[in-house]
Every structure is written in structure tokens, then in C-alpha cells.
Lab assay of single mutants.
Amino acid sequence: MPVRRGHVAPQNTFLDTIIRKFEGQSRKFIIANARVENCAVIYCNDGFCELCGYSRAEVMQRPCTCDFLHGPRTQRRAAAQIAQALLGAEERKVEIAFYRKDGSCFLCLVDVVPVKNEDGAVIMFILNFEVVMEKDMVGSPAHDTNHRGPPTSWLAPGRAKTFRLKLPALLALTARESSVRSGGAGGAGAPGAVVVDVDLTPAAPSSESLALDEVTAMDNHVAGLGPAEERRALVGPGSPPRSAPGQLPSPRAHSLNPDASGSSCSLARTRSRESCASVRRASSADDIEAMRAGVLPPPPRHASTGAMHPLRSGLLNSTSDSDLVRYRTISKIPQITLNFVDLKGDPFLASPTSDREIIAPKIKERTHNVTEKVTQVLSLGADVLPEYKLQAPRIHRWTILHYSPFKAVWDWLILLLVIYTAVFTPYSAAFLLKETEEGPPATECGYACQPLAVVDLIVDIMFIVDILINFRTTYVNANEEVVSHPGRIAVHYFKGWFLIDMVAAIPFDLLI
């Protein structure tokens, strides 16, 4: 008679799926529990143990900040960024110097990925580790590398530091407007667009060049630039800015003055950032001319202004700041037409079709709590990747769950009947059967004279019903998954307890 339990259901295979997918890609990662103190490590794979030199037993239950890997060259700011990422709910990448158990130093890129439950609360953290440099290539500990984003994938490793954006290309926007319009339909740009040429040739750093990471940081200074100062900065030398009595002219307006920039070969870094931020506020060169004239017309309804409409929906549905990093990277690809469009465009503009998908598509409701890094690593669709929660398995109709209350009560009843059979069957065979043979035949009273025979008949009927119930009862397979398919249940029961239950259900007393 089957006594099969499996009270692990309803099970959740999400954690096993993450481990299996990460292991298949030869990654070095740990999984931490966000619900406990210090976000203790609950799993670390073999790749991480080989990377740091510690065994799994030495890593388990330690804080996922990996303070046991810190050393003299470990930056405090990087460690603080990892700790801050564990307090938030967004994906974050941090470069930090770690030390192995043998004392060797290596520069590592740590990717902190939160995993949320159905309520939107962070319950786990996945920390992925990628070695960037070994100890002989690690720089000085005073050099802070965590304020910069990861290198873009479309640049060669040897040319990542030679990417320079020439400031004269930004200063000569109005001069290039006529050349853009003359391109017409034969050019790649839309009317009114501004073409910015980027020099990728390796050259020595000069005062006129600005690194790509500095251009990325310009967006942080746009908020500090007032509207009046932006307007004066875009007017140009024809209309000098008016300053109040006793007030000095704005240095932001002076930063885009061609006369002032041409007199000296070098520009201050602050002026460069502010000038680029001011130019980015204009949607095209037409807006710059309109600002000089004193009238700013409404933005025209053409394809170039609607190019950012799908980007707005993608940004609203993005799951991490990696989408913004990807957008900034692609927006700086050289030799393309940049349409400086305000994100607050007309909502009635139709979304044009684009061959290049900048932001990841909208994630469906079932995966809105899973970050983009987890979705990318697992390579699963929205119909396959579940949320991290207890999910009731989908069972067929008329199927009994093996952990249901009805099955528990039924098993206790069958257990009592088995005990009765084990006690009274030998007793009936030894004593009652002998008395029946010696006594007179009682054929007239039937079952009324033999109450134990009636009980034995009921017990046999219950055993037959138990066999039928076992054909529709779920079970737990070797992978700790609840199986509810009727065919698989029948095959599993035939290979197991079916023969024993059938022999126990045969009414031998009635056959004798």
C-alpha cells in the first residue's frame, strides 16, 4: 500500500533555474538572501570558489559584500557603492579590487542584480563577478574607477581610450546646418538635424578633445543650467548677453562664444560640459537660429522629431539603469545623424518603425519583477520565466494532490484497515475457520451469522477504491517536481505499489 509523501509542494524551481543557467555559462556568482541580516550568502558556485580561493563552506553565510576579499588596494568608495546597491532595488555595476585567499590582487567587475517577489519586494541578490585585470595590471588604489561605466561593446579594446569628441564640431553647429540641408533625401539625416562627426583615429590627448566618459557625465550638469543662461549661451556672438549692473557675465554663455574659444586653444572642462549641455537642449539648428531671432517656433511634425517616441515608452518600462547606459552608448555611435529632440514631445505622434532597438522591449506582467540581467542570462521568455513566489501546480481535472487534506485522511483510514487485516486475518484463519468446520452448517442466516465476513468484505472494497484513487494521485519525481499527468501517474504506480495493492485487495476469504 503506498505511503508516498512529498510535502515540499507547491515547489518553486526558480532558484534552481537560475543556478542551472548560470552554471551553463561558466559564470562566477553568488546568491544572497536579502531578508536576513547583512544579506548572507546562501549559494556560491564553483567558479566563484576558484576565483577567490575560498571553499564553499568558508563563503556560505558570510555577508555578500565580500568584505573578506578586501585588501589594501580595495577602494572604500567601491565598497560603499556595493553596500548601497544592496540597500536599493536597481541593478548596478561596480569595479573593485579584490584579494584572493593567497593574497593576489585582481580588479573585478561586480554586477549586483536584485530579484523581487510578486509584491515588488527584493528577496534575493545575485552578484556576478568578472575579472577585468590581474594584480600586475591593477593601478594605484588612489585612482577611482567606479565613477565610470563599463566599456562599450562596439569599441575595440585597444581603442576604448582613444575615443574623442571634438569640441569644434559642437561649436560649428550653425555652420554645418547648410551642408545638412543640402544633403536632402540623399543624406542619412532628416531636415533640421545636426550631424556630429566623431574622430576615432588614435591621437595624443589634446586640450581640444573630450573623453567619452566626460560626455556621459554632461547629463548630470544640465539641471544646474538655468533657462535664461541656456538661451544666452545659444544666442551666440551676435547678441551678447546682458548683465545687470554690478553683475558679471555668465561664464556659461561665454563658453560657447566662437570668438572667445578661437582665441585660446584650450577650454576648461567645466565650460566644455556646460556648452555641450546647452546645445543638447535645442532640438535642431533651426531652433538655434530661432533663439537668435527671439522667436522659438513649435517643433515640426516630421520623422526626426518622432524618433524618440518609442524611446520614451522603453525608458518607462525599463527595469534597470543598464538600459540608460545602453541608450547613452548607442546615442554616441560615430558617423550617424543625431536628432536633438526633447523627450517631452507630442504624445499624438505616431511611433516610426526603427531597425535598431535601443531599449529592451516591454516586459510582460509575469516578468515585471525580474531584472534585465536575470532575463538576459536565463534566456527565457515571458511565458517560461515565473515570478519568485509559491505557485500552485497546474493539475488535470479529477486529480488528487498527494499533500491535500483528503489524501491525508484517506491514508490514515487505509492504515487502520491494514492494521485490522494484519490482526484479524490470522485470527480468523486459526480459530474461526476451525469452529466453522466443526459446527453445523448455517446457510440460512447468511452474513448475519458471520459479522467478521462483512467487515472483511468492506475492507476489500476499500482497498479496491484505494487502488483507483492512487491512479489519480500526484507524486514527486526525482527532481522534486509534482507530477499531475494521468499517464505518468499510471506508469509510476504500475512500477511501484500496484502489484502489492492488488494482492492485498483480493478477497481470499470469499474465494475459499
Score class of each variant (00 low, 15 high):
331 S>Y: 03
347 P>G: 13
133 M>W: 15
126 I>Q: 05
19 I>V: 08
64 C>G: 14
324 L>S: 12
261 S>G: 11
145 T>S: 15
248 L>F: 14
262 G>P: 08
58 E>G: 01
175 A>H: 05
335 Q>T: 11
178 S>A: 14
162 T>E: 08
349 L>M: 14
276 C>Y: 03
165 L>G: 15
31 I>W: 01
36 V>Q: 05
341 V>I: 06
46 D>F: 02
279 V>S: 14
210 L>S: 10
8 V>Y: 13
56 R>S: 03
77 R>F: 09
293 A>W: 13
68 F>I: 01
153 S>P: 13
382 A>V: 06
46 D>P: 06
113 V>H: 13
148 R>V: 14
331 S>F: 04
248 L>M: 07
276 C>P: 11
53 G>L: 05
278 S>Q: 15
66 C>E: 01
94 V>G: 01
210 L>H: 05
41 V>I: 13
120 G>N: 15
216 T>K: 07
60 M>T: 01
181 R>I: 13
22 F>W: 13
241 P>H: 15
319 T>L: 05
337 T>D: 01
280 R>W: 09
204 A>E: 03
93 K>I: 08
281 R>D: 14
85 A>W: 01
164 R>Y: 06
4 R>P: 15
151 P>K: 15
170 L>W: 10
106 F>D: 01
120 G>P: 07
367 T>F: 10
326 R>Y: 08
164 R>E: 06
107 L>H: 14
91 E>F: 09
328 R>L: 04
188 A>G: 06
279 V>N: 11
101 K>L: 01
41 V>P: 01
128 N>K: 10
2 P>E: 04
76 R>I: 14
40 A>I: 06
24 G>L: 08
302 H>C: 11
337 T>S: 14
63 P>I: 01
299 P>N: 08
261 S>V: 13
275 S>P: 14
183 G>T: 09
105 C>G: 08
158 G>F: 13
196 V>A: 04
173 L>H: 15
369 N>M: 04
197 D>S: 01
120 G>D: 14
323 D>H: 14
68 F>Q: 01
330 I>M: 14
242 R>C: 14
378 L>E: 01
219 D>L: 04
80 A>G: 10
36 V>P: 06
244 A>H: 14
99 Y>F: 01
103 G>K: 15
43 Y>H: 02
221 H>Q: 13
63 P>A: 13
281 R>Y: 15
155 L>I: 14
179 S>T: 09
297 P>A: 07
101 K>P: 01
110 V>M: 03
185 A>V: 12
318 S>T: 14
318 S>Y: 10
202 P>A: 06
259 D>E: 14
361 P>F: 05
266 S>V: 12
372 E>G: 12
197 D>L: 01
68 F>C: 01
159 R>Q: 09
274 E>Q: 12
244 A>L: 04
380 L>S: 04
364 K>A: 12
123 I>T: 13
242 R>K: 14
140 S>T: 08
254 H>T: 14
32 A>M: 01
137 M>A: 15
102 D>R: 01
24 G>P: 03
202 P>H: 05
115 V>R: 02
73 R>Q: 13
78 A>E: 10
167 L>D: 10
71 G>Y: 01
170 L>S: 14
62 R>Y: 09
15 L>T: 06
124 M>Y: 10
18 I>F: 06
81 Q>G: 11
137 M>G: 15
358 I>H: 11
177 E>C: 05
197 D>A: 01
23 E>R: 01
9 A>N: 09
286 D>Y: 08
382 A>H: 12
300 P>L: 07
13 T>N: 09
63 P>N: 12
297 P>G: 11
72 P>L: 01
50 E>T: 13
207 S>R: 15
10 P>I: 09
356 R>H: 14
328 R>W: 08
341 V>M: 07
342 D>S: 12
82 I>K: 01
277 A>P: 07
199 D>P: 15
248 L>Y: 04
67 D>E: 13
26 S>V: 05
269 R>I: 14
155 L>G: 10
103 G>L: 08
274 E>D: 15
50 E>S: 06
306 G>H: 14
63 P>M: 04
50 E>G: 09
144 D>G: 14
